[in-house]
């Protein structure tokens, strides 16, 4: 190796190099044109809030001047007033707690079952052969279409709503989990085997942590689906809940309340995304 290095330097004598440098120096000098710009993401933290505020202001101005008809779209100030009413009467907590209860229970149970079934599919080829086709067949069915059935099976009360959300969260989690396990580096599993790790240790310490990034991205999708289904389920036979509130507002053509309810959903979605982002940062610290 050291032999190679000396040969390489010896073959290119200093005199050669200098002669090559000098020749073009007599001509006009200009910088090499830079072509490497763009295609790089820079973070602009303020742009989104500014744009949002600007949009609200324009909307408000449009409503005030009559450019936007009040029937077509209420002014943001009216929606804000409707939201304020909700807080004042304390109804917000009734609606929110009812919705959160359904969302948390439905999504958690659906995710837990989804991870369990996803792991079983990934680890046992018999389960994969038997269950995976069913998952593929049932995933694309809109769960809301099954709501009448769920009402018969689980009752008109909380049961059917939780079940809708549960099934909605279940399928994407199954698919994310077994896809994640399939993508775990085989060499790591082989390493575990070569050190005589038990089957359970390999699953617990190599396979599950390896699949965790995929499972967490699956959570992002399943949580959004859960919120969509929450509203849909609450539109049938619910007294309280954000979905029920929106449905009621729609029936009364109280568009200010409708916008207030939609804003609440948006905040709910953002909060869930933020929580999952936190979980990712905590659990996937090793990715840096």
């Amino acid at each position: 190796m050291s032999l190679d290095a000396t040969q390489e330097t010896a073959s290119r004598t200093p005199a050669d190099a200098k002669g090559a440098d000098r020749a073009p120096a007599r001509e006009r000098l200009r910088p090499v044109p830079f072509r490497g710009g763009g295609f790089v993401h820079t973070r602009h933290r303020l742009i989104a809030p500014l744009l949002f505020v600007l949009l609200l202001i324009l909307w408000e101005i449009g409503s005030q001047t009559g450019f936007i008809s009040n029937i077509a779209l209420p002014a943001p100030s009216e929606a804000a007033a409707a939201l304020g009413d909700l807080f004042e009467t304390g109804m917000i907590w009734k609606h929110l707690s009812a919705s959160l209860y359904r969302l948390v229970i439905g999504w958690s149970l659906g995710s837990l079952l989804g991870i369990a079934v996803g792991l079983a599919i990934a680890l046992f080829s018999l389960v994969r052969a038997g269950v995976a086709p069913f998952v593929s067949a049932l995933f694309p069915i809109p769960k809301i279409a099954l709501l009448p059935l769920f009402i018969i099976w689980f009752g008109i009360g909380e049961g059917s709503k939780v079940a809708t959300i549960l099934f909605g969260a279940f399928f994407p989690t199954v698919i994310a989990t077994y896809g994640g396990v399939d993508n775990v580096d085989r060499n790591l599993i082989r390493m575990g085997q070569s050190f005589g790790l038990s089957w359970l240790s390999i699953v617990r310490k190599i396979i599950i942590p390896g699949a965790l990034p995929a499972i967490l991205s699956g959570f992002r999708i399943s949580a959004s689906i859960a919120i969509i289904l929450l509203v849909a389920a609450e539109m049938i036979g619910a007294e309280y809940g954000i979905g029920a509130y929106i449905l009621m507002a729609g029936a009364l053509f109280a568009t200010d309340q409708l916008i207030a309810g939609v804003a609440l959903l948006s905040v709910l979605g953002l909060t869930v995304a933020w929580l999952i982002g936190r979980a990712e940062r905590l659990l996937l610290r090793w990715r840096g």
Binding site: D185, N187, L188, R190, M191, G192, S194, F195, G196, L197, S198, S201, K205, I206, P209, G210, L212, L284, W286, R287
Partner: peptide, 29 residues
């Protein structure tokens, strides 16, 4: 503890464990 022990070309370290944790892994069982 493990008479025949491999050292792999691609290292086969668990990225979610620290240096210490990677050594600890093979002792835990």
């Amino acid at each position: 503890l493990n008479p025949l022990t491999y050292v792999f070309q691609d290292f086969a370290l668990l990225p979610w464990r620290t240096v210490e944790g990677n050594v600890s892994l093979v002792l835990e069982d």
